[in-house]
Design a protein around this nucleic acid. Structure first.
Length: 205
DNA sequence: CGTTCGATGCACT
DNA sequence: GTGCATCGAACGT
């Protein structure tokens, strides 16, 4: 299918973010292929954005943001969840788009198997079946279901393992809101999502 | 329905 | 040593 070209990512982040809605994130592993339609993202733009991981300047962790566009930036959050970003803008202009939610497309069984493998193993009884729409709802759940981990940081999204494709899906209406879960830069409405979509986290309108 | 709170690991200061 | 771009269980209403 139509893999997104490098020039798609090498643009202003606030243009790339809404254009990612409706595109398909695909991960191929020996265990199988999982994919999902991107329905919710957030933009993190440059060292002047206090919520962006590039705000402190170049570090070991945020190195992919200073690299070429169209690569993945993955990091561990709260010691529990991996979060995946798409690096945007020309090289050395550190910015990225956080993937917050997907509508599951391929490999639902594999997603459910990954999600069922609880990280904490605290619950005793049989876990309730996760609804399809909740498999990739939220940035931590999306990476878990997709099998994306720290090993994917820096991965080229134009490669074969992890990629983003245009399969012709078109989104109805795009909504903007402040970004979720941050304590600084909250005045910038840089979260965008497909209005009313069942897989969007938090407020859907 | 709503809110609170603990888990958990690592990069950064 | 501190602080997270989160999640879901466990409460209260």
């Amino acid at each position: 299918m139509a893999r997104l070209p490098r020039r798609f990512y090498a643009r202003p982040t606030l243009e790339v973010a809404p254009d990612l809605l409706g595109k398909v994130l695909v991960h191929r592993t020996p265990a199988g292929v999982t994919s999902g339609i991107i329905v919710e993202v957030e933009a993190y733009v440059g060292e002047s954005d206090p919520a962006c991981h590039a705000a402190p300047g170049p570090t070991t962790r945020n190195a992919p943001m200073y690299g070429p566009p169209g690569h993945a930036y993955v990091y561990l959050n709260y010691g529990v969840h991996y979060l995946v970003n798409v690096v945007t803008e020309p090289q050395a202009s550190p910015a990225a788009v956080l993937i917050r939610a997907l509508e599951p497309l391929d490999g639902l069984d594999l997603m459910r198997r990954r999600r069922r493998r609880s990280r904490t193993a605290r619950h005793t009884g049989p876990a309730a079946r996760i609804p399809d729409a909740a498999l990739c709802k939220g940035p931590g759940n999306a990476t878990h279901a997709m099998g994306i981990t720290l090993t994917h940081t820096g991965a080229d999204l134009l490669g074969n393992t992890l990629r983003i494709e245009d399969r012709g899906y078109r989104v109805e209406k795009i909504c903007w809101s402040p970004r979720i879960g941050i304590s600084v830069g909250t005045e910038r409405p840089w979260r965008c999502f497909v209005e009313g979509h069942r897989s969007v986290s938090g407020r859907r309108m």
